[in-house]
Amino acid sequence: MHNSEGSFSEIARNRQYSKFICQEMLFDFLLGRLDPMRKEAVAAALEKHDDLRKQKHSLEVAIKYCSDLSQTKLGEAFMQKALAPLTIFDILKQKFSPKRWPIPLRWGIEALVVSSLVATITLVLFWSNIQSMIPVKNETVLIQQKIKKEEFNVELTDKKEIADFNEKMSAEIVPEQLVEVPAVAAVAKVTPVAEVAAVAEVPTPKVEVPKVKPVPPPDIIPKGYVYKLVMSLANLDLLGPEIAEKIIAMGAIKAGEVEIGWRKLNGNYYHFVIEKEKGLELLEVLKTYGDVQTVKDPHGRVMPENQDRYILWIEDK
């Protein structure tokens, strides 16, 4: 047992450390952390290898440099700034900093911002292309909505005409045929939807019929209608009057207070009454200028049998 221990320490003492191992132990050697046996081995290697000595010198220089750097002192001003208490703004900034938000939320917001930007840029750059891709039908619907607005404005100008019509109607109705129906609501119960719309379309201030005044029964309520034609043409300054002339030449009479072909900011307005046959002819003439959208709408005025009422709206292209 004693012999084996003696032989082990002898082997350890005689062990030859490679240059690489000595290099690795050099730092600990300088700090005095090695056991006597290894210290001896590194010292022996240092005597033997020149580059090891250079390495040791570099380490010594660096340790000295670090020791000098450790003399750095921080002034009072610096420490005051470092230790200054946090303001409410700092705390809020820290609490609500985007860095603290959950990753899905941050990514979501980023994605939203990027996609909105892309969409906006695309819309701005290619707006004219996109506009041309919108189906014509939609454009027509928009124009029709516009014409309804326009018509409303014109109807106000027709106030007198409608009032005359109402008076005429009341006078023409024979008193025996009249039933004492209190109001329009009662009429709506027995009339089809279209007729109710027709009745409802007559502006209330115009139908100033007192409650006691007799109202015609459902079977004799007039079923008026109007043809609404919508077109969209270029060069309207030239074509507008030309179309007006053709309409007048066909024997059309203006309805309402504005002349046929009334020029507005964004188009021309034609409100007229024409013979049924001529109306069909006119439609064919208009088709030679471009597409014509035709809508037959209920209207408060009942025209004589051989006549039709037309509202033509031509918008500037």
């Binding site: 050099l26 730092f27 390495q55 570099s58 440099y65």
Partner: peptide, 20 residues
């Protein structure tokens, strides 16, 4: 850590020596 410090010190020593 000690190994890293040893190696880094050696590098620093190289810079300081060059400067000197």
């Amino acid at each position: 850590l000690r190994t890293r410090v040893g190696q880094t010190l050696e590098k620093l020593g190289g810079f300081v020596e060059t400067e000197l």
